[in-house]
Design a protein around this nucleic acid. Structure first.
Length: 325
DNA sequence: TATAAGGAAGGTC
DNA sequence: GACCTTCCTTATA
């Protein structure tokens, strides 16, 4: 996984980037050089905060030095009309912005681009999978009940540190939401409507891609740990708190601001934002009154069971999995 | 004041 | 019965 430390290493300004499929004209993902992938908050009139957005771990591995293509993608166009800049993932379009490459260079670029596209799509699908597991909801928004939709909205609020937006979409099902236009979203939330619309669009695209992909592909794209596999087979099974915590830990680009590994080999982790983690757990379990006091009590129940313990050197908010993976 | 530890009772599956 | 959730008291940093 990528290092969230980049944001502390003086990475300079970066251009958020959407990737869209020419076939569907659907915004697929945000690429963001320095930290996580995020829509341009400044364009939404927001202060610059950490914004997890859609995490594309592949991007961490694609440094500009190693991948001139990525450099060209990030610099391809000046930001277009707000709120989002979109970019067709079409080799032809990329080429237009450059000096005409040789035929060989063009083929190499095309292959690189296909690889990037495959990785991006795979990572988006994985992240949607993870969120589905954490929330216990279906991947396709069309299948969401109003309860599912509220969970998704609450989760999105906390993930992106938005003010309350879920109240503006009460009594709606996923199908209702999908039938709404971007203007409808903006009408309900002038500040965050388009951001939510784009986020929902990603989920819908992921769902339609899942339908098209054979199961083998989906399987290969899934996390390779046993619990994830188990949850894919039995998505409606109740989740245990330790599983939930581990899943958060395995997605550092989304959740490292609230929980992170101190020593993954030893299974030692630290809860950085106790209230946030408790809130996420509360959303997952439909327990609005969940707080860290209660969550920590549940963690302490694991002491006797030998699942979690305090590390040898006890520190506040630091715990250790007895059997790290 | 926040966190840690653990007892006790109750709810849900 | 397992697995929390809720409430509580006491201790500690």
């Amino acid at each position: 996984m990528g290092s969230p430390g980049c944001e502390h290493m003086g990475c300079t300004a970066h251009l958020p980037l959407y990737i869209s499929h020419s076939q569907t004209d659907t915004r697929m993902a945000w690429l963001d050089e320095a930290e996580d992938i995020k829509p341009p908050r400044s364009m939404l009139g927001l202060p610059e905060l950490s914004w997890p957005g859609v995490y594309l771990p592949c991007y961490d591995r694609l440094t500009i030095d190693e991948n001139p293509l990525v450099l060209r993608m990030t610099e391809a166009e000046a930001p277009a009309a707000p709120p989002y800049r979109t970019l067709e993932l079409s080799p032809a379009k990329i080429s237009q912005a450059q000096d005409p490459p040789s035929e060989m260079e063009g083929q190499v670029e095309e292959r690189c681009l296909e690889q990037v596209q495959t990785m991006v799509v795979g990572e988006v699908l994985k992240d949607v999978d993870t969120a589905c597991k954490l929330l216990n909801i279906a991947p396709d928004p069309l299948d969401w009940s109003s309860v599912h939709l509220q969970k998704w909205l609450l989760w999105t609020e906390h993930l992106y540190r938005l003010p309350q937006v879920s109240t503006m979409f009460q009594e709606l099902t996923g199908r209702d939401l999908c039938s709404m236009t971007e203007a409808d979203f903006r009408q309900r939330s002038s500040q965050f409507g388009d951001m939510l619309y784009a986020h929902l669009d990603i989920w819908r695209s992921a769902a339609s891609m899942k339908e098209r992909c054979p199961p083998e592909d989906s399987k290969s794209a899934a996390d390779d740990d046993s619990w994830s596999d188990e949850m894919c087979n039995f998505p409606s099974q109740p989740i245990h708190l330790w599983q939930f915590l581990r899943e958060l830990l395995l997605k550092p680009h989304y959740y490292s601001r609230c929980i992170r590994w101190l020593n993954q080999e030893k299974g030692i982790f630290k809860i950085e934002d106790s209230a946030h983690v408790a809130r996420l757990w509360g959303i997952r379990k439909n327990r609005p009154a969940m707080n860290y006091d209660k969550l920590s009590r549940s963690i302490r129940q694991y002491y006797k069971k030998g699942i979690i313990r305090k590390p040898d050197v006890s520190r506040r908010l630091v715990y250790q999995f007895v059997n790290p993976v």
